[in-house]
Design a protein around this nucleic acid. Structure first.
Lengths: 235, 235
DNA sequence: CGACGCTTTGACTATACTCAACCCGTGTGG
DNA sequence: CCACACGGGTTGAGTATAGTCAAAGCGTCG
């Protein structure tokens, strides 16, 4: 769900409609079916760094990202952040708590100026009941997220930081292009949090991988993978 | 792979129907609605220690546990297990891959002799389309699992083993009963795997918590929590 | 009673965390 | 136009938590 290219500039209905058509959970709907959904949506803008929702806040709204970038994270005791995922235009959130508990357990923060559509739980349930195909899309996405979370958990608890980094880098490669250059989309701090380590350790391990000639850091955000085999078998 | 020892159970439909009624994802259905679903189900028995499905196996079946106990886990490089969850009668699995990829990324193993119902992906999708309420139940459950997985991930990456143990123990307390005695349902090995640590460390930390008088190990499986406050603020 | 499996204890090691200083590129203001 | 401040990133030193391997308890089941 990473179509960073979708954006809606105005808040009028027709723009919302165009926007929704690009949202995976809705894009299978006929154009006129969207008419039923549109009136239920509210738009809201968040400035950079603003919190969209936070822990313990009542969760009765589904958010769909129209424009911008959202960072979702959890906070541990000691206020260490665990990065969960980034949300791009077309992605949704709020879902967990919509279907289960009534308060959020994580934070959603606008990384850039961000526009969202919102729909209340009850109304969204009605929409789903009417268009069950939406439920399929949601299930797909939830399944995917669960799979990613479980994989992540396994990595963090059973692999060394170096291996996590290696796998993460290899996972970034685009299977279509045969370029061995990958681009990091997040800061060291966020990547460290995502991989369950500290920025210092991340930096050190990257340096080591570079010493070993497995990778080359062309810049902080651009990395060349020289030896994928060895990268993946390095402890 | 795991075909041996498993044979279709030709028990009568009515027993299956009674069974389904106890399954959360179906128990809101009217008794006669189940009639439509029953013919699609196949029963299968697995003996203790048998693998129900494993990594890279084609995933096109939803399993519903009728009887027994199932352990789901992932394997890292180096074959370290990460325990994901246990499935009890009424629980389902296979779901992730049903809605997304086509191969399993985890293992499901019968811990005891276990009976399951199975339904193929396509047929199940048809069922959902007919009874959208099932999709709600699934979404609820998936949301819950995602939430648990994300919490788990945050614990493992940001809390000390001791804190993870403490939180886990406190989480076991039954809010209804005011007993401070909790029962562990899994072996040290599995609990260690679940908490992202080793059995040795788990054992040591439990011993330490006992030294501090925060807990008392009445037996390996039964623990008394003496000081919940301190337990949760201990580093 | 003996053997096996699960758990605990022991000794050692290593990975990774913390805190702190330093580096570097960028944007700002004098 | 340069100096400086700031944030993000890296490097360094010391420490600590937790992992590994090995051996010894313990309990249960034949």
């Amino acid at each position: 769900m990473n179509q960073h290219n979708t954006h809606c500039e105005h808040d009028d209905m027709s723009s919302d409609k165009n926007c929704l058509l690009k949202v995976p959970i809705f894009n299978h709907l006929a154009y006129d079916q969207l008419e039923h959904i549109l009136p239920l949506l509210k738009s809201k803008k968040f400035k950079k760094k603003e919190i969209i929702y936070q822990v313990n806040e009542k969760a009765d709204t589904l958010y769909i990202i129209k424009k911008g970038l959202v960072r979702m994270y959890r906070l541990s005791e000691g206020y260490k952040e665990q990065l969960l995922r980034f949300l791009y235009p077309g992605d949704f959130t709020g879902e967990l708590n919509i279907f289960t508990t009534s308060v959020h357990e994580s934070f959603a923060e606008a990384v850039e100026d961000t526009d969202v559509c919102m729909i209340k739980k009850d109304q969204f349930e009605a929409v789903i009941a009417k268009y069950p195909a939406i439920a399929f899309m949601l299930l797909k996405e939830m399944s995917l997220r669960l799979e990613v979370a479980e994989k992540q958990m396994t990595w963090i608890s059973a692999e060394t930081v170096e291996m996590r980094i290696a796998k993460f880098l290899v996972g970034l490669m685009d299977p279509n292009k045969d370029s061995n250059i990958v681009e990091l989309t997040m800061s060291r701090k966020n990547l460290a949090s995502f991989l369950g380590t500290s920025p210092e350790t991340l930096s050190r391990r990257l340096a080591r991988l570079e010493d070993l000639k497995y990778i080359k850091q062309l810049s902080t955000k651009v990395i060349q993978l020289n030896d994928i085999e060895k990268l993946l078998e390095s402890a």
